[in-house]
Amino acid sequence: MDGLEKLIDLMPQFLSDTGKTFYIVGLSMIFGGIGGLIIGTTLYVTRSGGVLANRAVQAIAGFVVNFFRPIPFLIFIAVAQPLARAIVGTGIGDEAAIVAISVAASFGIGRIVEQNLVSVDPGVIEAARAMGAGPWRIIRTVILPEAFGPLILGYTFATIAVIDMSAVAGFIGSGGLGNFAIVYGYRQYNDWATWAAVLIIVIIVSIVQALGNAWSRKVMRR
């Protein structure tokens, strides 16, 4: 039986793994996206001159992010296993992967968010302060909306990075296209299966990027 026929036989598995990739990436982006927004906003507003300038919080948040972010994701999965057991009751599988990806993505997205927020014109924040707006209101109604266009691009970039992570997570037995490519392509020497997974990932990434670009252009009116 040659590779193509095998791939056709594997079609139900392939479709279910594609669905799993959406499931893992989707949930990871919700948790990691929210976590990253909180971390990034914290890093930004606690800078000196920020609306909630706080040297201690800034130093601690910066240290935690810098400590975890450089860990290669493959190793981070192992580091995060105890946490996954505590949260979802198991260190392997889809749910454990979502925990590991969400935490790792939070730190990465945190830095992306921080960089996006730095682009907000400080004059606009000063104007809001002059009107009598407090720090929380300024974060909610000035800083985040003003940075919305760049944030969309940042999150687009992050989504693609998370798709990449979800493929790596195949190593701890989580499903998805990464697992499919490893199990049916790499281990069984079936290039058809590998390339099918690659193709569908490329298509997903292209669509995500195109949507992100179009949306941010609309928001930034360019």
Binding site: D121, G123, A127, G132, V142, E146, F148
Partner: peptide
């Protein structure tokens, strides 16, 4: 903040919200 509401301010570079 309450006091600032009674004082308007305008700026050299206008400082309008681009998102609105």
């Amino acid at each position: 903040r309450e006091m600032r509401r009674g004082i308007g301010m305008i700026f050299q570079r206008f400082n309008l919200l681009r998102s609105r």
